[in-house]
């Protein structure tokens, strides 16, 4: 590849899952070769009726990587190539043609996932003991042979080549892009069907229509995605953007350093946040991440200096009040304190 990019994947069992003795239901995986980088995260559903969602998530990762590898290999990036049975890249760039091409890709992922689930179920049929512990609805459903739901999971898959990047998503979790102007955006809007503990799923009969994707031909500094264990631990998107700014900043010190930082930070997120399984994937552009990281580091230092100076002024105000024995801080005095801090 001309662009010097590298994927990373990281996953940790949720603090709440550890406490309750529930296995990690997230799965992650990556692939890289001379043509492409791929990173995939899948979050198996947590409710008791989805008791094989950890396996379902693992199969999602395998199916997505296999299908994306085949997809990129099926593209012809040079219009002059005389290669039959390949899709000209220009078609993928055409909005009208792209939706059909991506639809075929998603269908391949779904077929592959169902094959893996079917095979696993054939070799490992549900035990009566487990079925007896489920609600009547799911007991009946699974006994009638509709077992796929037990493997339900979400998916976010990112693929990047010298010519394009793309993210495919079904279900919750978040995709984040740091572009070449160092802007941090979330290009895939939150699916309205994914609220609170409800999510769309690869196990749905109409899963094909539930997929969303975003495609670009620019060269980002970084592409990230995470299971909802990350975004559910922060109150809003602005805080999340600060998280990804920090992550990009540590990758500026080198891939290995950044990866180690992320690996050790995920347990902090799940411990202090939602407590769910927490996984993050990304593709880092090693050529541009250092400059971007330096820009972000300056931003952070300026913000910290500003905060320190505001805190110092507030403490001085408080000390002054206490020294004067004045316990009554009038609204006017409070306002004047804030004005001073703004002037500084």
């Amino acid at each position: 590849m001309k662009t010097n990019c590298k994927p990373f994947v990281c996953s940790t069992q949720g603090a709440d899952h550890i406490r309750r003795g529930v296995v990690c239901q997230d799965a992650v995986g990556s692939f890289e070769d001379s043509l492409m980088n791929i990173a995939v995260v899948s979050d198996g559903h947590g409710s008791a009726q989805y008791f094989r969602s950890d396996m379902g998530a693992k199969f999602v990762v395998e199916a997505a990587i296999e299908s994306l590898k085949g997809f990129v290999s099926s593209l012809s990036f040079n219009d002059n190539d005389d290669v039959q049975d390949k899709i000209p890249f220009s078609h993928l760039c055409s909005e009208s043609a792209r939706s059909d091409i991506v639809r075929d890709l998603v269908e391949n992922i779904l077929v592959s996932w169902h094959e893996k689930v079917d095979l696993h179920y054939k070799n490992n049929p549900f035990e009566d003991e487990i079925l007896d512990s489920l609600s009547e609805k799911y007991k009946t459903k699974y006994r009638s042979g509709k077992y796929v739901s037990a493997y339900g999971a979400t998916m976010i898959a990112i693929v990047q080549t010298d010519y394009f990047w793309m993210c495919l998503q079904i279900g919750d979790g978040i995709f984040v892009k740091v572009d070449d102007k160092y802007a941090i955006t979330m290009p895939l809007p939150l699916d309205d069907e994914c609220q609170n503990e409800v999510t769309t799923s690869i196990c749905q009969d109409n899963a094909l229509s539930k997929f969303h994707y975003v495609f670009g031909t620019d060269i980002p500094v970084a592409l990230y995605a995470a299971s909802d264990g990350v975004d559910d631990s922060y109150d809003d998107d602005e805080m999340l953007k600060l998280v990804y700014r920090g992550i990009t900043t540590v990758f500026g010190k080198g891939y290995d350093y950044g990866f180690q930082e992320v690996k050790e930070y995920l347990p902090v997120i799940t411990k202090n946040g939602k407590g769910d399984d927490t996984s993050m994937i990304g593709i880092i552009n090693l050529d541009s991440v250092s400059d971007c990281a330096a820009f972000f580091r300056n931003q952070i230092e300026e913000e910290q200096q500003k905060n320190n100076s505001v805190a110092s002024i507030e403490n001085n105000d408080l000390d002054s009040l206490q020294t004067n024995g004045n316990s009554l801080l009038s609204k006017d005095e409070d306002s004047s304190g804030e004005n001073v801090s703004e002037c500084n």
Binding site: S233, Y234, E261, V262, Y265, V268, N272
Partner: peptide, 14 residues
């Protein structure tokens, strides 16, 4: 690991 703790807002309950 120390740096990300300083570079990112902490995930916190309320």
């Amino acid at each position: 690991m120390a740096e990300l703790n300083n570079l990112t807002p902490p995930p916190r309950k309320v």
